[in-house]
């Protein structure tokens, strides 16, 4: 629908994006950096219970890696990594993972999200699972938002 209404910004954006892809430095550097960003995201995710970090920050960093990849190399490449449908399902999975810890502790006879119910190291294991759920949900939500907006002014000639 947007195509008829605003052809101008569409074509401008398209050429801008192509230009971005043709920049050698950007392309090479982003290919180098993206794996490091993803690795750092995992570090922040799993180091969260010893130091600063946690699911939200890790999710955002992970999404930033994927978004950078998509910005420089094209939305289609990012979509090949994680499609809209997968992202949506992962959002639900993340939230449900979080909720299931709460339900589990309730079933085991403690209050909602009382990790002590999960056993001797409950506090430790509980928070890791919860943060994992948060991380998955945040990362996939961010990527889903990016994909929704990135496609707005696409035309057939884009790819």
């Amino acid at each position: 629908m947007s195509r008829e209404l605003t052809p101008q910004p569409g074509s401008r954006r398209r050429s801008a994006r192509r230009a971005l892809r043709e920049k050698l430095v950007l392309r090479v550097m982003s290919r180098l950096i993206v794996p490091l960003i993803l690795l750092f995201a995992l570090y922040v995710q799993f180091h969260g219970d010893y130091g600063p970090g946690g699911g939200f920050q890790a999710g955002v960093i992970l999404a930033a890696g994927v978004i950078l990849y998509g910005l420089v190399l094209g939305v289609e490449r990012a979509r090949a990594v994680i499609s809209e449908k997968v992202a949506e399902i992962l959002i639900a999975v993340g939230v449900l993972l979080y909720g299931s810890v709460g339900i589990a502790s309730m079933v085991l006879g403690k209050n909602y999200l009382d990790y002590d119910a999960l056993g001797e190291h409950g506090q430790h294991e509980g928070i890791i699972i919860v943060e994992l759920g948060v991380g998955i949900a945040v990362a996939s939500a961010m990527i889903r938002i990016y994909l929704a907006f990135a496609d707005l002014y696409r035309t057939e000639a884009d790819e």
Binding site: S2, L5, T6, F56, V138, A148, F149, L152
Partner: peptide, 23 residues
């Protein structure tokens, strides 16, 4: 911050729809 991100995303999505509906 999460709330802010969600609000911004929603507001921008609405803006896009308004642009489509009204030009």
């Amino acid at each position: 911050i999460v709330v802010g991100v969600a609000t911004t995303a929603l507001a921008l999505a609405l803006t896009v729809r308004i642009q489509e509906a009204y030009g």
